[in-house]
Lab assay of single mutants.
Amino acid sequence: KRPVSAMFIFSEEKRRQLQEERPELSESELTRLLARMWNDLSEKKKAKYKAREAALKAQSER
């Protein structure tokens, strides 16, 4: 099983909040919005998710 990506971790963290704030969005619209949010995120903020990705990857390799 492959470890999850930093973007996937970000998306899972933000998805529920966005669904509550924007219930009119379809699943595909929500996914596009999350992708745009990820792309607009600064490298400094992405680092938090990339660190979690690395930790999960290291854990799965044990």
Results as ranks from 00 to 15, higher is better:
Lys1Trp: 04
Lys1Gln: 05
Lys1Glu: 07
Lys1His: 04
Arg2Gln: 02
Arg2Thr: 07
Arg2His: 13
Arg2Ser: 10
Arg2Tyr: 15
Arg2Trp: 02
Pro3Gln: 14
Pro3Asn: 15
Pro3Asp: 12
Val4Asp: 14
Val4Glu: 15
Val4Cys: 04
Val4Leu: 13
Ser5Trp: 02
Ser5Ala: 13
Ser5Asn: 15
Ser5Phe: 02
Ala6Val: 01
Ala6Gly: 12
Ala6Ile: 00
Ala6Ser: 05
Met7Lys: 14
Phe8Met: 14
Phe8Ala: 09
Phe8Gln: 04
Phe8Thr: 11
Phe8Lys: 14
Ile9Lys: 03
Ile9Ala: 09
Ile9Val: 07
Phe10Met: 01
Phe10Asp: 00
Phe10Tyr: 15
Ser11Asn: 03
Ser11Cys: 08
Ser11Pro: 00
Ser11Val: 15
Glu12His: 05
Glu12Ile: 05
Glu12Trp: 03
Glu12Arg: 08
Glu12Lys: 11
Glu12Pro: 01
Glu12Gln: 07
Glu13Val: 05
Glu13Pro: 01
Glu13Ser: 06
Lys14Gly: 04
Lys14Asn: 09
Arg15Asn: 02
Arg15Phe: 08
Arg15Leu: 05
Gln17Pro: 05
Gln17Phe: 05
Gln17Ile: 04
Gln17Ser: 14
Leu18Ile: 14
Leu18Asn: 00
Gln19Cys: 09
Gln19Tyr: 09
Gln19Val: 13
Glu20Leu: 08
Glu20Ile: 08
Glu21Leu: 09
Glu21Cys: 10
Glu21Asp: 07
Arg22Asp: 07
Arg22Ile: 03
Arg22Tyr: 10
Pro23Asp: 02
Glu24Arg: 04
Glu24Gln: 06
Leu25Asp: 01
Leu25Ala: 08
Leu25Trp: 02
Ser26Asn: 08
Ser26Trp: 00
Ser26Glu: 08
Glu27Gln: 07
Glu27Leu: 02
Glu27Trp: 02
Glu27Asn: 02
Ser28Cys: 12
Ser28Leu: 11
Ser28Arg: 08
Glu29Tyr: 02
Glu29Ile: 02
Glu29Ser: 05
Glu29Val: 03
Glu29Gln: 08
Leu30Lys: 08
Leu30Asp: 01
Leu30Thr: 07
Leu30Val: 13
Leu30Met: 12
Thr31Ala: 12
Thr31Pro: 02
Thr31Val: 07
Arg32Asn: 06
Leu33Cys: 08
Leu33Arg: 06
Leu33Pro: 00
Leu34Cys: 12
Leu34Asp: 00
Ala35Arg: 14
Arg36Ala: 14
Arg36Cys: 11
Arg36Asn: 13
Arg36Tyr: 06
Arg36Glu: 09
Arg36Pro: 01
Met37Gln: 04
Met37Pro: 00
Met37Val: 02
Met37Cys: 05
Trp38Phe: 06
Trp38Gly: 01
Trp38Arg: 00
Trp38Lys: 00
Trp38Asn: 00
Asn39Gln: 14
Asp40Ala: 07
Asp40Trp: 02
Asp40Lys: 06
Asp40Gly: 09
Asp40Ser: 08
Asp40Glu: 11
Asp40Met: 12
Leu41Trp: 00
Leu41Phe: 02
Leu41Gln: 04
Leu41Val: 02
Leu41Cys: 04
Ser42Phe: 00
Ser42Gln: 03
Ser42Arg: 01
Glu43Leu: 04
Glu43Met: 00
Lys44Cys: 07
Lys44Ile: 06
Lys45Met: 12
Lys45Phe: 08
Lys45Cys: 14
Lys45Thr: 10
Lys46Tyr: 01
Lys46Arg: 10
Ala47Pro: 01
Ala47Gly: 09
Lys48Ala: 14
Lys48Met: 13
Lys48Asp: 15
Tyr49Arg: 00
Tyr49Ser: 01
Tyr49Ile: 01
Tyr49Lys: 00
Lys50Val: 12
Lys50Ala: 07
Ala51Val: 11
Arg52Ser: 07
Arg52Ile: 07
Glu53Arg: 02
Glu53Pro: 01
Glu53Ala: 11
Ala54Lys: 14
Ala54Leu: 11
Ala55Thr: 11
Ala55Glu: 15
Ala55Met: 12
Ala55Asn: 07
Ala55Gly: 12
Ala55His: 14
Lys57Leu: 10
Lys57Asp: 09
Lys57Tyr: 06
Lys57Asn: 10
Lys57Met: 09
Lys57Cys: 12
Ala58Ser: 11
Ala58Asn: 15
Ala58Glu: 10
Gln59Pro: 11
Gln59Trp: 05
Gln59Met: 15
Gln59Arg: 13
Ser60Asp: 07
Ser60Leu: 11
Glu61Leu: 11
Glu61Cys: 10
Arg62Val: 15
Arg62Gly: 15
Arg62Met: 13
